[in-house]
């Protein structure tokens, strides 16, 4: 396997996911399969090939600095699991 359980544990931590040991083993296997699959690209010789920044051959797409009407507060907060007045409420963040 190309990934270790520790690497997956770290990635899960970065994504703020709490995994059981059983899930960790399963995901290590599945993620390794994905990484190996994509890893086939490594076999292509890319010497002298410029990295692709964007698949579309266009650039300089801008909009003017003109305001639009924002969402009403009620609409913006409609999907919020919790709110305090006009604020979203989230579990206390200690970090």
């Amino acid at each position: 396997m190309s990934l270790t359980a520790d690497q997956v544990r770290w990635v899960a931590h970065l994504a703020r996911l709490e995994l059981s040991e059983a899930d960790l083993a399963k995901l290590t296997e599945q993620l390794s399969a994905i990484v190996d699959y994509v890893g086939q690209l490594q076999s292509v010789n890319t010497d002298g090939v410029e990295p692709l920044a964007h698949p579309l051959p266009i650039h300089n797409v801008f909009r003017e600095d003109e305001p639009h009407v924002p969402l009403p507060v009620e609409a913006a907060l409609a999907n919020a699991p919790d709110r305090h007045g006009g604020f979203y409420g989230v579990p206390a963040v200690l970090d």
């Binding site: 639009h68 924002p70 507060v73 913006a76 007045g85 006009g86």
Partner: peptide
């Protein structure tokens, strides 16, 4: 006058969550 990727106002001191749209949330 507006945000980087949408037309919501870029102003300090507005009431909370009164300057948002689907792009910036």
């Amino acid at each position: 006058k507006t945000k980087l990727f949408c037309g919501c106002p870029n102003r300090f001191g507005l009431p909370p969550n009164s300057a948002t749209c689907p792009v910036c949330i």
